[in-house]
Design a protein around this nucleic acid. Structure first.
Lengths: 185, 185
DNA sequence: ATCGTTTTTTACCATAGGGTAAATTTTTCA
DNA sequence: TGAAAAATTTACCCTATGGTAAAAAACGAT
């Protein structure tokens, strides 16, 4: 959901040539899944074009949106990619999407060869940690309505690409509650 | 709240000598603050001994616990330390506590000199991101009661050191609700 | 453009958890 | 050890959000 100047398609495609990374692409039509629960996630995905939604299923089988990922941003299933735990995340294309697949080995090659890549990787991970940390604070101190308004301000693109039901579960409420909130605004 | 073998007091104190880091200590009595909102947070803190609570204030001035930090684990105010934003976190000693102060420069020295420190720093940041990420999932799929039971299982030490009101706000509920939940178990 | 499907809204009642206040228990420390 | 302070529980009613179901609106394929 956030972009960095350093991990950009321009830089990645240059490094791909310079260091013979042999990066693969995947192209998805709207509605297709890049990753499913149960499949191992061996890649960091970099979104060249399009828009992705990361979700998982609760006990009743409802889809809970966990994250959105737009052009020039990265996404993965961290518990699977970093810790080799069973993957529970689905990654779905909300529009026609192209991604670069970056394996752990390829990422290591980048980090070992590109000056400041190691530092920038830490910055990116810190961004993720801070973003999730802030989201917990917002859940604990803001109403669903003000979280909704904040999301509109911070990430207006989501509202053009995702269904309201996706946004509702991202905010931690039902789509009926979101509908009620929208009515009151 | 989680420890790593790599960033341990043993290793840090060795590096301190080996690379002339000149690390400072701070000692806190139970109840004292290591950091206050408004103060800049220039350090990564490593807990040598004791137990810390990280909290912030909501609009009404209620303390909301965001994190606990035990012996051999690290803590900081990431928005202040990494991004130089205004610090909103308080860090309070829940028992007599000693910490090592690690400045950004000192951390850089470690990362540049100690083999694998860079990788281990990324692992640590990924742990933080995943832990917060998992907490959001738990908030969105579990009842307060099952989050309480999970916390007891995962971090029993917290229940020896923190007040129930600290735990309640960490779980995102009032202390009255936590009391009700405890009664039903 | 139209029919069928999907998405969103509305309406109804149910419930988990919040807010206030007071009672009770535990801790602190003189 | 006993009084004061702090922490926890209880009780009351209240509110935001949930669950189910159905209606309405929007979308999409032919």
């Amino acid at each position: 959901m956030f972009q960095t100047k350093f991990f950009s398609s321009k830089n990645l495609l240059n490094w791909n040539i310079q260091y013979n990374l042999d990066l693969n692409n995947a192209s998805l039509k709207k509605g297709e899944l890049l990753l499913e629960a149960g499949q191992r996630c061996d890649y960091f995905y970099f979104v060249l074009k399009g828009f992705l939604r990361v979700y998982y299923l609760d006990i009743e089988g409802n889809e809970i949106t966990h994250w959105f990922s737009s052009k020039e941003s990265t996404v993965t299933s961290p518990f699977s990619y970093f810790k080799k735990e069973e993957n529970i995340l689905f990654i779905e294309a909300l529009e026609d999407t192209d991604v670069l697949l970056i394996s752990a080995n390829q990422l290591n090659t980048i980090i070992e060869n590109v000056p400041s890549a190691s530092k920038e990787a830490r910055v990116l991970l810190a961004e993720f940690a801070m973003t999730f940390s802030r989201r917990i604070m917002d859940i604990h101190t803001k109403t669903a309505e003000s979280r909704y308004l904040k999301l509109m301000t911070d990430y207006p693109a989501i509202f053009q690409k995702a269904k309201l039901s996706h946004i509702a579960s991202f905010l931690g409420i039902t789509q009926q509650s979101l509908s009620r909130i929208r009515k009151n605004i």
